[in-house]
Simulated scan of single mutants.
Amino acid sequence: MFNIALFGCGRIGKVHAVNIAANPETQIRAVIDPYQEGAMQLADQYGADVMTVDEAMSDPDIHAVCICSATDTHADLIELAAKAGKAIFCEKPIDLSLARVRTCLEVVEASGVPFLVGFNRRYDPQFRTLKDLFESGAIGKAETLVITSRDPSPPPVDYVKVSGGIFRDMSVHDLDMARFIMGEDPVSVSAHGSCLVDPEIGEAGDIDSAVIVLHFPSGAMANIINSRRSGYGYDQRIELHGSKGMLKAGNVREHLVEHWGEEDCSSAKPQYFFLERYEKAYIAEWQHFVDVLEGKVEPQCSGYDGEQALVLAEAALESLNAQNTVKLG
């Protein structure tokens, strides 16, 4: 049984708490959060102790950390855990600064501890099946990839102001997915965007609608479409076209019942938000981390992957501002 220190008791921390407790090989040993009331509630729920950062890092009975705290705490906690010899799972991003990410990864590499970055969509059953079929040769050589990601409604402006912007906060998932599916790093990035949904997002210095084009060394291309508002649920689709056909992963709907009548035919909307849509992905992601702890596998999403996703997000922002294509490598 692996004892886990959970950092952060917010929305995503609670998601991971459920999966840590449900897995037969892990249990929550410590909960750490500056909001003491929330920490105590979560600790009581799972039979854990409320600890300080120092207490958790120095506890020899804690084998690993699960970092779900505020973004600006991630890199510091990663470094502390690495120096303490704890295995590390950290929600994306490592940090919003590429320079800070790189200094953090130097510490992790020097420590030799396992490190998994939480890009959960890699573990989604639909997307994983698509990748497996592609790698089996089902559609031959990849030619074009289209990733559509639209939130059901825009986030609060206060969140936008601290999020790092749409490319670092939202598009970064799709940029990682493009690398994951294609199995190669892009050589150029071109991004275009507008503020079409919420004027307050524009006033905060961000955009809410974007299109990103990636070119890969193989000649293949990826097109990423992002919006902060769909109006019909959490729109998550992938289409990969190759020399021998196409693979397509559609939306997961609220239910599979369709209504057919004289007037029209209808089906359910996509599931509303990421907590429902990626429930199975979060479970599979934690199981993968357990496999890493047991020494069965290497982390499928490494610190390098976390760094490269941010490299692409930064390149997209540079492209948008300069209105040109950014070359990489």
Rank of each mutant, 00 (worst) to 15 (best):
I20K: 07
E262S: 15
G165F: 00
S69T: 14
D305W: 09
F115A: 03
A138S: 15
D235K: 04
A281I: 08
V15C: 06
N226C: 13
P270E: 04
A43M: 02
I207F: 03
N324Y: 03
G38V: 02
Y234I: 00
L275S: 10
Q41L: 13
A70Q: 13
F134C: 03
A70M: 13
S153C: 00
C265Q: 11
C104P: 00
V311D: 10
T73L: 14
G10A: 12
L6H: 09
D158N: 10
Q300D: 15
A268H: 04
E200D: 14
I225N: 08
A315R: 06
S209A: 07
H16A: 03
H173A: 06
L116R: 01
R237W: 09
L98S: 12
G245L: 07
L275M: 12
I201G: 07
G202Q: 11
C9F: 01
I12V: 13
G38R: 10
S188R: 06
E135I: 04
V290T: 06
P217S: 09
I224T: 05
S111I: 03
Q36W: 01
S319A: 10
K141I: 12
D305Q: 10
V197F: 07
A22S: 15
I139Y: 01
V146F: 02
A48G: 01
G165A: 10
S267M: 10
Q236F: 14
R229T: 08
E298M: 13
Q271F: 04
P186H: 11
G261P: 06
V162S: 14
A82Q: 08
N223Y: 12
D76G: 01
W286Q: 02
D291M: 12
S243N: 07
A316P: 01
Q308N: 11
M1T: 15
R150A: 07
L105T: 10
P60Q: 12
